[in-house]
Design a protein around this nucleic acid. Structure first.
Length: 426
RNA sequence: GGAGGAGUGACCGAGUGGACGAAGGUGACGGUCUUGAAAAUCGUUGUCCUGGCAACAGGACCGGGGGUUCGAAUCCCUCCUCCUCCGCCA
């Protein structure tokens, strides 16, 4: 969320920003301006009356102690009191409308973010490795996994439905190995491991920006105001909601494994087969709470920390900086890590590393204060996947496939699989 | 699921419906004392909103929401959270 004061004073800038994001006309800024003026007018009216009430009440108290007659004052004040109540209600209405609009305003992209309409304007920042050349006809991860007996989509759809997967035997162990490997990588980089609830409440989802705008992306628990976590970003960032962090301790680095649940509304027909786009997938998330002065250095670090996992797994990838039109709602800047998927001959997103600046901190009231600061100030929050486990599994299956249908285990993972070097059909 | 108890500032903790934004303490910061430190001692120490260039003025906030009242931290209702006991349970 941007500050009310900032929006008030930079309406033209916001309009321009919305245009860059391709959200022109999607936010009712004119109403915002009107409501903002109206709100402040009503505040002044109400506060003047409250002042009168406070003063008179004090007088009544004094008069009463002197045993003087206060009947007339009481009657008069009864009226004032009713009037205040009335006005408080009308003020609240305006405030609610204002918040409604505020919550639909996206973050302002950082000045270094390329301007563009859609993903075609994203810029490749760097690459690692080369797409491997295969001397045989390659298979996609579904074919490989099913042939090895480690992936089963049919039974998953029987148990639940489409966009779910069953992993079996060494496949299940591989998933668990990846989770442990990634958490260990994060720990090595100084992230504290956290185990969090896999359901979140409304407030938490508003803080990080999923609600109210993206409600249809979440799975809601019937009869509860709880949602299944779509990303560990939410519980991790909300660790410090409504807190003032000791400034000397910044940056705070956290990592967590959670399964992630997404409805994938609006992605019908996209990646319907295989592990790429599931309703449930595993992910390790990295979250930083940073001092505003160096949040962009922290973003670089965070991105490198996520990349390092791909380097260790020796998977070819590229880093892309998202353009204004492709940038997430709350992000000021975002790097996507894209891993090479041989069967699609494409780089596909496997991690997304963003700096939210104050956007989430303001929504979630997350501040910091150092000893020499007079006032607490909003932190900058950052997060990135380190990494999406399901997609990593896809990348491994496809990039490490052998002509005979077996699979070489990446060196970095072998110690997590009792030294296993190769997976073959059993 | 049943029965009780509790939620007050960074923390601990007091608070008869009017002199309470809130005693007292701890911590932090600043001063005095000291060669330095400790101890002692004095002082400062919340957030948000409105108006104002500012100094400042005003308003709101005692878990959240509502109610009673001229006036609520204090009374009533409701929700949330935590604790204790009983029951059930992985």
């Amino acid at each position: 969320m941007l500050s009310r004061e900032f929006i008030r004073e930079n309406v033209e800038f916001i309009k321009e920003m919305l245009k860059k994001r391709g959200m022109e006309g999607q936010v009712d800024l004119d109403s915002f301006v009107q409501l903002d003026i109206e709100r402040r007018k009503r505040i002044q009216e109400v506060e003047n009356l409250r002042k009168l009430r406070n003063e008179t009440s004090e007088r009544i108290s004094i008069l009463k102690r002197k045993n003087e007659n206060v009947e007339e004052l009481l009657l008069k004040m009864k009226e004032v009191s009713d009037k205040i109540k009335e006005m408080e209600i009308s003020l609240e209405e305006v405030e609610k409308e204002l918040i409604k609009i505020e919550l639909t305003i996206p973050n302002a992209p950082h000045s270094s973010v390329p301007v563009g309409k859609d993903e075609s304007a994203n810029k490749i920042v760097r690459k690692f490795g080369e797409p491997k050349k295969f001397s045989f006809k390659i298979k996609d991860h579904i074919e490989i996994g099913e042939a090895l007996g480690i992936l089963d989509f049919q039974r998953a759809s029987k148990i639940t439905g489409s966009r779910f997967a069953v992993l079996r035997g060494i496949g299940a162990k591989l998933e668990r190995a990846l989770i442990n490997f990634m958490l260990d990588c994060a720990k090595e980089k100084g992230y504290e491991e956290v185990w969090v609830p896999f359901m979140i409440n409304e407030k938490s989802a508003i803080s990080t920006g999923q609600l109210p705008k993206f409600r249809e992306d979440l799975f809601k628990i019937e009869g509860w105001e709880y949602y299944l976590v779509p990303t560990a970003e939410i519980p991790l960032t909300n660790l410090h909601r409504d807190e003032v962090i000791e400034g000397e301790k910044l940056p705070l680095n956290y990592c967590a494994y959670t399964p992630c649940f997404r409805s994938e509304a609006g992605s019908y027909g996209k990646d319907v087969k295989g592990l790429i786009r599931q309703h449930q997938f595993d992910k390790i998330e990295l979250v930083k709470f940073s001092h505003p002065d160096n949040s962009y250095q922290e973003l670089e670090k965070l991105t490198r920390d996520a990349e390092d996992i791909l380097i260790k797994l020796e998977l070819p990838y590229q880093v892309v900086v998202l353009c204004t039109g492709d940038l997430g709602f709350g992000a000021a800047k975002c790097y996507d890590l894209e891993v090479w998927i041989p069967s699609q001959e494409k780089y596909r997103e496997i991690s997304s590393c963003s700096n939210f600046e104050e956007f989430q901190a303001r929504r979630g009231n997350i501040k910091f204060k150092t000893r020499d600061m007079k006032k607490a100030q909003f932190v900058h929050t950052l997060n990135g996947s380190g990494l999406a486990v399901g997609r990593t599994l896809v990348a491994i299956l496809e990039n490490y496939q052998q002509e005979d249908g077996s699979l070489i285990v990446p060196k970095a993972l072998q110690k997590y699989l009792d030294g296993l070097e190769k997976i073959e059909k059993n």
